[in-house]
Simulated scan of single mutants.
Amino acid sequence: MNKTEVIARRILGWKLNRWDRWYDPEQGVFIHDFQPEESLDHALLIVKRLKSFGYTYTATEEHEVCFNDVCENGDTLAQAITNAAFTLADNSTIDDGWL
C-alpha cells in the first residue's frame, strides 16, 4: 500500500470503492481523487480525524508538523501532514476501533 492508502484505510477508516474513489462509511459519502499530499483540504481531514482520537497537532516550523511525538516535514504543509500521518499509521499499533 502507498501512503494515501495507508492513511485512508488505517486512519480515516475508508474503503476503496474504485481505483479513484473512496467510501467513508461513517459519513456515507464517496471521496473522489483523495490526494492529501497535494490538497491542504484533504490533509486537514487527517488532522481532524487524528484530533478526534486524542492526538495533538502542532505545526513546529513552516513545513514541519507533529502529532504528539511523531514529527515529519515536507515541501508543503500538506506533504508534512501526510508524511507525519503515514509515519504514525505505518509504525504504530492501530487500535481495532480505528477501522
Score class of each variant (00 low, 15 high):
residue 61 E to R: 15
residue 57 Y to F: 15
residue 20 D to S: 10
residue 27 Q to C: 02
residue 26 E to Q: 13
residue 53 F to V: 05
residue 52 S to N: 14
residue 54 G to F: 05
residue 52 S to I: 00
residue 43 A to S: 13
residue 22 W to F: 10
residue 19 W to F: 11
residue 34 F to Q: 05
residue 64 E to T: 15
residue 27 Q to P: 00
residue 47 V to W: 05
residue 59 A to D: 00
residue 23 Y to Q: 08
residue 54 G to H: 06
residue 22 W to L: 03
residue 25 P to V: 08
residue 40 L to T: 09
residue 49 R to D: 00
residue 38 E to R: 15
residue 29 V to H: 07
residue 63 H to T: 10
residue 59 A to I: 03
residue 36 P to I: 07
residue 30 F to W: 06
residue 55 Y to I: 00
residue 47 V to A: 12
residue 36 P to T: 09
residue 34 F to K: 06
residue 31 I to P: 03
residue 41 D to A: 15
residue 34 F to S: 02
residue 51 K to M: 10
residue 42 H to A: 13
residue 19 W to T: 12
residue 50 L to W: 12
residue 37 E to K: 14
residue 41 D to F: 09
residue 51 K to Q: 14
residue 40 L to Y: 11
residue 42 H to W: 03
residue 39 S to K: 12
residue 36 P to N: 09
residue 30 F to V: 01
residue 29 V to F: 02
residue 58 T to I: 12
residue 46 I to N: 03
residue 21 R to N: 08
residue 34 F to A: 06
residue 60 T to G: 02
residue 58 T to K: 15
residue 21 R to K: 15
residue 41 D to S: 14
residue 34 F to V: 04
residue 57 Y to P: 02
residue 63 H to R: 07
residue 51 K to D: 02
residue 28 G to R: 01
residue 36 P to M: 09
residue 58 T to N: 14
residue 22 W to H: 02
residue 56 T to D: 05
residue 42 H to L: 03
residue 63 H to D: 05
residue 20 D to Y: 08
residue 38 E to I: 11
residue 57 Y to R: 08
residue 51 K to P: 01
residue 36 P to E: 04
residue 19 W to C: 04
residue 60 T to H: 07
residue 33 D to G: 05
residue 61 E to T: 15
residue 19 W to H: 13
residue 59 A to L: 09
residue 41 D to T: 10
residue 22 W to N: 01
residue 19 W to N: 12
residue 53 F to D: 02
residue 36 P to A: 10
residue 62 E to F: 03
residue 27 Q to L: 10
residue 20 D to T: 06
residue 41 D to K: 14
residue 48 K to Q: 13
residue 37 E to L: 06
residue 61 E to I: 04
residue 26 E to W: 04
residue 65 V to D: 08
residue 22 W to M: 06
residue 32 H to G: 02
